[in-house]
């Protein structure tokens, strides 16, 4: 509390000081002097955000333009002094990534993974939400059970799934064999490994979609359905013309959120398949992690990967927003 007050007055003082300056007596100065109190109240948040998000981001972008690694960043530890010898190398980290064959294949799989996961999240989540939105015996019990996967920490679920899907000793294959089928190489075959990680992620992500969409469904006025029924609309027509448009505000947000989360869904891939077999299920973030933390840490390379992932997501978000706006969505 104390710091907030201190920060506030400091920021307020500068704001006022600037407002009084002879040159800045324009619209901006007037704006600042009129709203100095608001600025003062915002200052703590702005400062914390700058320190926690702004600085690492700027630092990351800077590192991505150098050839910094763990070996050439200067430091002194006890009797050892390592000199700083890293240099500014411009965009060469980026060109190296973009021109490598690895990048395109990783990107293609990351996009496939994101699209399939989000589509299944949304589809299954909407189905369950519709089921749970009608009067049903034991409805609260079902709701609780369905939310459970979300309540378990992701890494715990990932480990449990890894064990369940083990080829030789796993429960899933034991059940398949007991039912007279052969076991499948859930985690050991490139194709099935991809299916497995998608299945695990869908299992993890559906509850959130379901809850969010359930909230959206409950916000749609009952009268609309009644009026439609009176007009003789079929259930499909009601779904198509009332439920879906009514869910729009919620859907657009959760789909965007889901896309960003899934695109960067680190624990599922890293813990279930470790990117294997043979790197086939590695997405961009897990690959960037490997760059950063394997052997001598490659700060510049991994920073470049990070910035690239950020840019991809920003572009995606902008395109998505444009598309929504074209459809008349005020978002």
């Amino acid at each position: 509390m104390t710091t907030q007050v201190v920060d506030g007055t400091a920021a307020g003082a500068t704001a006022r000081g600037r407002a009084r300056g002879p040159r800045s007596r324009g619209r901006a100065g007037g704006f600042l002097s009129r709203h100095w109190y608001a600025w003062a109240m915002c200052a703590p948040v702005v400062i914390v955000t700058l320190v926690l998000i702004g600085y690492p981001l700027v630092r990351g972008v800077y590192l991505s333009l150098t050839d910094a690694t763990e070996a050439n960043m200067g430091r002194t530890i006890g009797m050892n002094t390592i000199p700083s010898t890293y240099e500014f190398v411009g965009l060469s980290n980026y060109t190296a990534i973009v021109t490598s064959g690895e990048f395109l294949s990783r990107l293609a799989w990351t996009i496939t993974w994101t699209v399939v996961c989000v589509a299944l999240h949304y589809g299954i989540g909407l189905g369950l939400a519709l089921l749970l939105n009608r009067p049903l015996r034991l409805r609260s019990l079902y709701r609780m059970l369905l939310v459970l996967p979300w309540a378990v920490p992701a890494f715990v679920s990932a480990f449990i799934w890894r064990y369940l899907l083990n080829g030789e000793f796993g429960v899933v294959n034991a059940m398949l064999r007991a039912a007279g089928f052969g076991g499948l190489d859930w985690l050991d075959d490139p194709f099935w490994a991809k299916v497995s990680v998608i299945a695990v992620n869908v299992w993890l992500g559906v509850p959130f979609m379901m809850l969010a969409l359930l909230g959206g469904l409950q916000a749609i006025p009952r009268e609309l359905y009644e009026a439609a029924e009176v007009d003789g609309a079929t259930p499909w027509q009601r779904f198509r013309h009332i439920t879906l448009p009514g869910l729009r505000p919620v859907s657009s947000t959760v789909v965007l959120l889901g896309t960003i989360w899934t695109f960067n869904q680190f624990p599922v891939i890293y813990l279930v398949t470790r990117g294997g077999p043979g790197g086939s299920s590695e997405i961009l973030v897990t690959y960037a992690y490997r760059q950063a933390f394997e052997g001598i840490r490659n700060y510049s390379g991994s920073a470049a990967w990070g910035v690239l992932i950020l840019v991809l997501l920003v572009v995606m978000a902008v395109v998505y927003r444009r598309a929504l706006r074209r459809q008349g969505e005020a978002w």
């Binding site: 200067g74 009797m79 050892n80 002094t81 390592i82 000199p83 700083s84």
Partner: peptide
Amino acid sequence: GGEDTPQQ
């Protein structure tokens, strides 16, 4: 940042 070889 310093000299070329680690000082020890």
